[in-house]
Simulated assay, not measured.
Amino acid sequence: MAPYRIVLCEDDDIVRERLASLINGWADGDLVASCATLAETLAAYQRSEVDLLIVDLNLPDGSGLDAIRALRKTHERAESMVISVLADERSVLEAIGAGASGYLLKDADSLDLIEAVESLMAGHSPISSRIARILVRQLCEQSPDTHKWEPAVNMTSREMDVLWGISKGFTYAEIAQQLHISRQTVPVHIRNIYRKLQVTNRSEAVFEATRQGLMQF
Rank of each mutant, 00 (worst) to 15 (best):
L214G: 13
Q178M: 03
M155N: 13
Y103D: 00
D109M: 15
S129E: 05
Q198Y: 10
A98I: 12
Q142M: 05
I114A: 10
S125T: 06
S128T: 11
L59V: 14
E115N: 13
V188I: 06
L65Q: 08
V50Y: 08
P3T: 05
S143A: 06
Y4V: 02
Q138E: 07
L53V: 11
L163T: 09
T185F: 04
P187I: 05
P126A: 06
I175F: 04
S48R: 12
R16H: 13
I181N: 00
V92W: 01
V206K: 02
S182N: 00
V199N: 06
A209F: 10
G25T: 09
L163N: 11
A152I: 15
R195Q: 08
D61T: 09
N192P: 00
I193G: 00
D66T: 15
L111W: 15
H75K: 07
R202M: 09
M81N: 08
L135R: 08
A67W: 15
E76P: 07
A176D: 02
S128A: 10
D109C: 14
W26P: 00
D161Y: 11
V32R: 04
I14R: 02
I14H: 05
I134W: 03
I131R: 00
A108S: 15
Q177R: 06
N154T: 15
A95I: 13
D109L: 15
F170K: 04
M121F: 14
L113Q: 07
D11C: 10
D12W: 03
E94F: 12
D13E: 08
T200Y: 07
T41K: 13
T156E: 03
R5F: 10
W149T: 14
H75E: 02
R16V: 08
A122C: 13
E159Y: 12
Y194K: 03
M81E: 02
H189I: 01
L8I: 06
A43W: 13
V206D: 00
D30I: 06
L57S: 02
V188G: 00
G97I: 09
K148D: 02
I190L: 01
D109G: 14
G99R: 09
A2E: 02
L31C: 09
L8E: 07
Q184E: 05
T200D: 02
D107V: 14
P3E: 01
F207P: 02
S21W: 09
R72M: 12
E49D: 12
R130L: 13
E150Y: 11
M160R: 14
H75F: 14
A95S: 13
Y103I: 14
L105F: 15
E204H: 09
R72D: 06
I181A: 00
A33I: 14
K106Y: 13
A122P: 04
S63W: 10
R183N: 01
G99F: 13
R191A: 02
I175W: 03
L163C: 11
Q184G: 01
Y4S: 05
V206P: 00
R211A: 08
A43N: 14
Y194F: 12
H75V: 12
L86A: 07
N58E: 06
V85Q: 04
L38R: 10
I127N: 01
W164G: 09
L111I: 15
L31A: 11
T37R: 01
A44F: 15
Y194R: 03
P144Y: 08
